[in-house]
Structures are given as C-alpha cells and as structure tokens.
Amino acid sequence: MSGPQISITYCTQCNWLLRATWMASELLSTFGTELGSVILVPGTGGVFFIEVDGQRIWERKRDGGFPDAAALKRLVRDQALPEWNLGHGDRANS
C-alpha cells in the first residue's frame, strides 16, 4: 500500500461508529486513491481519535469534541499530503 494510512478509533459504548464511518467517507471522497488506507478501530471508554501514519492529529478529549469535515480534511492534508489543493474548503486558511 502506498499513501498515508489513516485510522479512526471510536468508542463502541458511545455509539460513535456512524460518526467514524462518515469521517472515513469524507476522507475517501476527497483524497481517493492518494490514501493508502482508512481503517476504523473499535474502542471503549469514550475514545475518539484520528491518526495519520501513527501520528495523532485529533483526539476528542484533548481537542474538545469532534472536527468538522473541512477541519478534518485540512488536518489530513497538512500531515500527509501538503501539496493537495482542497479548493473552496481551503478558504478558511487563505
């Protein structure tokens, strides 16, 4: 597999599977084959975090909730695909 490996760890007790799958879908729709993989990792105890190649880019407890789609895409782009143009979703950083 080439390309960055994304993992989304979510709490099964909190019923965050739908949120995790939505975020995975957003990343796959945006970055497509540039990504090596997007995996969902079930956890417990209120965990929700996102990693790119083992580097944690978002943690619900640390970062105060969940990222919206635009923020998540910027975080993944900045960590893994810095040359990627997010188009109109990138205006917040311009």
Rank of each mutant, 00 (worst) to 15 (best):
T30K: 15
M1E: 05
F66H: 11
W58L: 01
P4I: 03
D78E: 14
Y10W: 12
D90R: 13
E34R: 10
V41D: 07
V76Y: 11
L81V: 03
Q55I: 09
N85M: 07
E59K: 09
L75N: 01
G36I: 09
G46S: 11
L86A: 01
V76E: 02
R77Q: 04
D68M: 08
V76S: 04
L72K: 09
S29G: 14
W58D: 00
W22M: 04
L72Q: 03
D78H: 13
R62D: 00
W58S: 03
A80H: 06
G87K: 15
L35G: 03
I39K: 14
G87V: 07
R77H: 06
E26T: 07
L17K: 12
V47Y: 01
L17P: 11
Q79K: 11
Q79C: 14
F66R: 13
T21K: 10
E51F: 05
V41K: 14
G64M: 07
T12V: 12
M1H: 08
G89Y: 11
V47M: 02
V41W: 05
G64C: 09
T44S: 03
W58E: 02
A92D: 14
K73G: 01
K73Q: 05
R62N: 03
R77I: 01
L75R: 13
T9R: 12
L28C: 13
D63G: 15
G65N: 14
N15D: 05
R56K: 05
G87F: 15
V52S: 14
N85Y: 08
H88N: 04
A24I: 08
R77W: 04
R62Y: 02
R74W: 04
R77M: 02
I6K: 15
T21A: 06
I8F: 14
H88C: 03
L17Y: 09
D68W: 13
S37M: 10
F48M: 06
